[in-house]
């Protein structure tokens, strides 16, 4: 009896060993995202997990953060991945400067690093002597698509306001610059530009007050859809249906607003696929493919009612 037990235990142990060995055959990809409290990254993570299951030839370790500015935990995650000896790190940096040094360490440890979603700072890369490609959407170009749609609708002299994302955030900045480029190109009249910190309720209040100060507003460019929803609600309570709104992100909640005309357009940057596509690119390099270079642009698309 005792012998049997020992044999069984040994067999279990062997099976476990075999199990880990098998898992070790597959390349391991560490995915580092920003705040999982953000719908965009939540969808992205779901997309990456589905992708892991579908491909089945790699192992995914995914980490997110508490909030958008918690870049210390991103740095810790990189260090943990180096210790664990992963084959590739795919990262959406929370801070485009702070992440350069830890990622350099990872590259020196022979890990394939792919930077996606937010580009690392060019200056910081130069300083640290890091060559790293960027895989991601053109936030500025995307915002310009939405801004242009608004510009075409209003024509020269159209009076517009911008609702910005978090001050200092790279994508907020890029989207604002994209909107401003549309303002310049279509000779729109930019009356005001304010942050609502990506949030619906704040956008609702801030925009109501902007509308009071400038009752002649004709168009609104919101840096994300959550804020666009707040703007649309403010227009409804003010009884105004003559003001055109564009957003960004194409979250499900704006679908009905676009189809019934309360919003003119939004921009889809296919966040669900973005991490998955970056993982594909990383695995190519792990398998001996050429290094990535420059800016690998991911698709963006203007979403309108038709």
């Amino acid at each position: 009896m005792k012998l049997l037990k020992i044999a069984a235990a040994a067999a279990t142990g062997l099976a476990l060993l075999a199990g880990t060995a098998q898992a070790d055959d597959k390349p391991v990809v560490g995915l580092i995202m920003k705040s999982l409290a953000n719908e965009f990254f939540q969808n992205m993570m779901a997309g990456a997990q589905a992708h892991e299951e579908k491909r089945g030839d790699y192992k995914l370790l995914a980490v997110g953060m508490q909030n958008e500015t918690d870049f210390e935990s991103q740095i810790n995650a990189v260090e943990n991945f180096i210790t664990q000896g992963v084959d590739a790190i795919v990262v959406a940096p929370a801070d485009s400067r702070a992440m350069v040094r830890p990622l350099k360490k990872a590259m020196e440890a022979g890990i394939v690093v792919v930077n996606f979603d937010v580009a690392l700072d060019t200056e910081a890369k130069k300083q640290q002597n890091v060559e790293l490609a960027f895989v991601g959407p053109d936030n500025r170009g995307g915002a310009k698509l939405a801004g242009d749609a608004l510009g075409k609708k209003l024509g020269a002299g159209g009076k517009v306001v911008i609702i910005e994302g978090n001050p200092g955030a790279d994508n907020a900045n890029e989207r604002r610059l994209g909107f401003e480029a549309s303002v310049a190109e279509f000779e729109l009249d930019l009356l005001d530009s304010r942050t609502a910190h990506w949030e619906t309720e704040e956008a609702n209040s801030v925009f109501s007050n902007m509308l009071t100060a400038h009752p002649d507003i004709q168009g609104v460019m919101a840096a994300n859809d959550s804020m666009a929803i707040g703007v649309v609600k403010a227009l409804e309570s003010a009884g105004r249906d003559d003001i055109v709104v564009v957003g960004f992100d194409n979250i499900p909640a704006v679908g009905p607003m676009i189809s019934d005309g309360r919003m003119l357009a939004t921009v889809d940057q296919f966040g669900t696929d973005m991490a998955a596509n970056s993982i594909d690119l990383a695995l190519e390099v792990v398998k001996g493919g050429p290094q990535l270079e420059g800016w690998v642009k991911t698709p963006i698309e203007l979403v309108t009612a038709n």
């Binding site: 953000n38 619906t200 929803i229």
Partner: peptide, 10 residues
């Protein structure tokens, strides 16, 4: 007021 529920509200 906003006709949505957002988990990052407040």
């Amino acid at each position: 007021r906003l006709n949505i529920s957002s988990p990052i509200a407040g």
